[in-house]
Amino acid sequence: MDDLERKRVLVVEDEVFVALDMAANIEDANGTVVGPVATVRQALDLLRGGEVDAAILDVNLPDGDIGPVVDLLSDQHIFTVIYTGGGLPDRLAKRYPELPVFHKPTPPSVLTHTVASALMHPAG
């Protein structure tokens, strides 16, 4: 089992069952869930209000795409995973080619493993 060592992981997902499954998987891996939240606005508010160590983000949310959240996370050098039913918009894919993108229905355990590995072995 991957161990997130109490790292704080932001979950941004507008499908409630997917968000709850993701949150449970993070907690099972000894992580602390920030959120989950379902909108860009809520995600930005959480990021401005506290620290996170990593993030798992859906792309298309009720109030727009995740671009502003990805920008803020990137500015803060926070490891981010995209989890989407579609794909990453071209402008984000070009700006952030290193972003890991997983397509639904990838199991949450795969996402948790990716986050735990990245936090254990930071790049650069």
Rank of each mutant, 00 (worst) to 15 (best):
N30P: 13
K104N: 02
V11F: 07
Q42F: 09
A55T: 14
D3Q: 13
L46H: 04
D58F: 10
G124Y: 00
F17M: 03
T32A: 06
A54M: 07
L4G: 11
G31P: 08
L92N: 11
P89G: 06
T84L: 06
R91E: 12
V40L: 02
N60P: 02
T32L: 12
A19P: 03
V37H: 05
A123K: 06
P89C: 03
G87H: 07
G87E: 09
A24T: 07
L61H: 00
A118W: 05
V16A: 11
V70Y: 03
R8G: 10
L99D: 10
P89S: 01
V101Q: 08
L44P: 15
E51A: 12
L88M: 11
P68R: 15
G85T: 02
V11I: 13
A23K: 00
G124W: 00
A43M: 08
G87P: 12
R6F: 13
L20V: 02
L92V: 03
L57G: 08
E27T: 14
V40W: 00
A29Y: 08
P36N: 01
Q76G: 11
V40G: 04
N60D: 02
M22Y: 05
D28L: 03
Q76E: 08
V37R: 05
Q76L: 09
L88C: 11
A54G: 13
I26N: 05
V12M: 09
M120D: 15
I66V: 14
D63P: 00
A29D: 13
H103E: 09
M120C: 05
V33D: 01
Q42V: 11
G50Q: 13
H121G: 01
A54S: 09
T80L: 03
K104R: 05
Y96V: 08
I26C: 05
D14P: 00
L44H: 15
E98V: 00
R6I: 14
D14Y: 07
R41Y: 10
P100C: 04
V11L: 08
P36T: 03
T114E: 04
V52T: 14
E27P: 12
Q42L: 10
A23L: 06
P107W: 02
H113K: 08
V110K: 09
P97S: 08
A93F: 12
T106R: 03
N30E: 14
V59S: 00
D14E: 07
A29P: 14
A29N: 10
I66N: 00
V12T: 07
L61Q: 01
M120Q: 12
V33G: 04
P36G: 07
L10Q: 12
K94Q: 12
P89A: 02
R91D: 13
R8T: 15
N30R: 10
T32Q: 06
S109P: 01
T80A: 06
L47W: 13
A123Y: 03
Y96Q: 12
P62Q: 15
G86Y: 02
Y83W: 05
R95C: 07
P68F: 15
L46N: 11
D71M: 15
E15W: 03
D71A: 15
I26L: 05
T114G: 03
L10N: 06
V9R: 02
G31R: 07
G87F: 10
G35D: 04
T32G: 04
A118G: 04
S109T: 06
V110I: 06
L88K: 09
T112Q: 08
V18F: 04
D58P: 01
P122Y: 01
E5K: 13
A43C: 02
K7G: 11
D2S: 09
L88V: 13
